[in-house]
Design a protein around this nucleic acid. Structure first.
Lengths: 312, 312
DNA sequence: ATGAAAGCGCTAACAA
DNA sequence: TTGTTAGCGCTTTCAT
């Protein structure tokens, strides 16, 4: 009667509703879960909850989930060990019907997941067919950033990557390489360095390049934080951005436009990625034989003040 | 036998353990919850999940919760209406045993919560005795920031507050006022303006003060974002920070030290606040007659480059 | 020290 | 269209 059943006598319905109101009856979700074997709870795991990118994906997932009548458990697992532990707990206890996995260190995890588990990966490609994923179109995004710099006349373009164990870092790098090649620019391995997404790593890498007198007129950092660090190192060496060196970041993090100079960047709609992930997951949870999808989200170039024409 | 019961025959225990291993048995948390009426789940509500302050509190709460064998449901409720709805759902369904409430618009909510609900408020004072809270010592923190500026020789100190409906904004303002008074500085209402925590609001307020030729040599912004906005406005007006005007922020958000100039600020340990909140909540959940505590967390002054000695 | 049985609050299948 | 009943997987109490 409560669960919106159709064929009930209007009069009965009224009586029931009256009783509900009178007793203040509220169905118990736990008992319900127990009876139907469905918890209407999803879980979302990320390395941490504070990084804006992750937080924003989580928020998107949470919004979408709640809109469909699900709640979202969130938990952070900074390393592989704790991740595996967490997944085990979650699955074993059958609290969550599905998992949104925001985890860069993917492959080993995926191997670890039992086949029947409903999971959607965000920002990482499960290189198997057994799961859906939502990814940024990192290849194109990397190409877009590189093309922007080439269009401005730059030819010696340094690249600060994220950890190359992560799919997105590898794809962005690939986009960079492909675009250089298409523009007939010789690849130069001296210009490529691996960071860890932190501003400090961007700073360190650029300082080192500068000390080693590596020549470049532009830098493509795979996230805004490393771009900020890079700009810091440049400024410290007396170089002006963008007059001497152009810098493009990635993410369009909050306040990117408030740095000096305002950061040119690639915007990714992480909130939307979260929504998509939750939607896919809910589909998978509600279908007995779910189909697997790979959703690719487009990125957008945001031109601000940290990039400028090559003035060689 | 599984639940660590003492009086069992060692031999029986062995047999049971063998069976568990063989069958791959994993207890079902839902059934357990149902039987004992305990879900071992807490919920954490915040206006959003992306703001670093909130995210960091949530992460702290999540860590602490999990350490005690609880999971954490998170949800965002940007306005009062959705908040009330959410709380109702959560309580009615009895999914969560307790609530960590990170919510600035507090009073009306609190009134709304039934007495028996276990809740811990973060960053807001439940002005009743029926709940615990974890708050930053905003009064002292506000005083500390103000004193720092006074110590540098400033006497015309502008203040950009957060929304004054929020306890923390009011307390920081009070700390500012008290400190000015103690230093025999005339209060000047022209120097106080209310922002909304956004960089834009800081920008707008300072631009307006500048346009109206309000005199000040220092600004105390109640968060770093508004401080950034303020610096932006100052720079645009051709003023140098800190040579012409000193600016102090609040929060010590990530990258605060990467802005130019690096932001002097008050650091609050939000992660710890989250932990404390979860700990208090778990205590309350596990005690039949919980005591209520108000925990006050100290703040710390981080001096960087955006404040300097008054130079006439 | 162990086994048996009732019941947590619901849903779903069935009988009326 | 409505009422009845079994059972979801566990904990807990009571007998053994």
């Amino acid at each position: 009667v409560i669960n919106g059943f159709e064929r009930v006598n209007p009069e009965t319905r009224q009586r029931v509703e009256a009783a509900i109101a009178e007793l203040g009856y509220q169905p118990n979700a736990i008992a319900r879960s127990m009876a139907q074997g469905r918890t209407h709870t999803l879980a979302c795991l990320a390395p941490n909850l504070t990084d804006f990118t992750f937080a924003s994906i989580i928020e998107g997932a949470e919004n979408e989930a709640r809109q469909h009548g699900y709640f979202l458990l969130t938990a952070s697992a900074p390393d592989q060990e704790s991740f595996v532990l967490l997944v085990d707990q979650l699955l074993a206890s059958r609290r969550a019907e599905g998992l949104v996995l925001i985890t860069p260190f993917l492959d080993s995890y995926h191997t670890h997941l039992p086949r029947y588990v409903r999971a959607v990966y965000v920002s990482a490609d499960p290189h198997l067919d057994g799961a859906s994923s939502v990814m940024l179109d990192d290849l194109n995004a990397g190409a877009m950033a590189t093309r922007h710099l080439i269009d401005l006349g730059h030819r010696e373009i340094a690249q600060i990557t994220g950890p190359l164990v992560e799919d997105c870092a590898r794809n962005r790098l690939l986009g960079y390489q492909t675009t250089l090649q298409a523009a007939n620019i010789q690849p130069n391995s001296q210009l490529i360095a691996q960071g860890d997404w932190s501003a400090t790593s961007g700073y360190r890498i650029v300082s080192k390049m500068l000390a080693e007198k590596v020549r470049f007129s532009a830098i493509f950092a795979q996230n805004d934080r490393m771009a900020i660090g890079a700009i810091h190192a440049l400024r410290q060496a007396g170089k002006h951005v963008p007059q001497d060196v152009s810098v493009i970041g990635f993410d369009d993090m909050p306040l990117a436009s408030y740095f000096d100079p305002a950061i040119t960047t690639i915007q990714q709609d992480t909130f939307r990625m979260g929504r998509e992930a939750a939607r896919l997951l809910i589909d998978a949870v509600e279908q007995p034989e779910p189909a697997f999808h790979k959703v690719l989200i487009g990125a957008e170039l945001i031109v601000r003040q940290s990039t400028g024409r090559f003035s060689g």
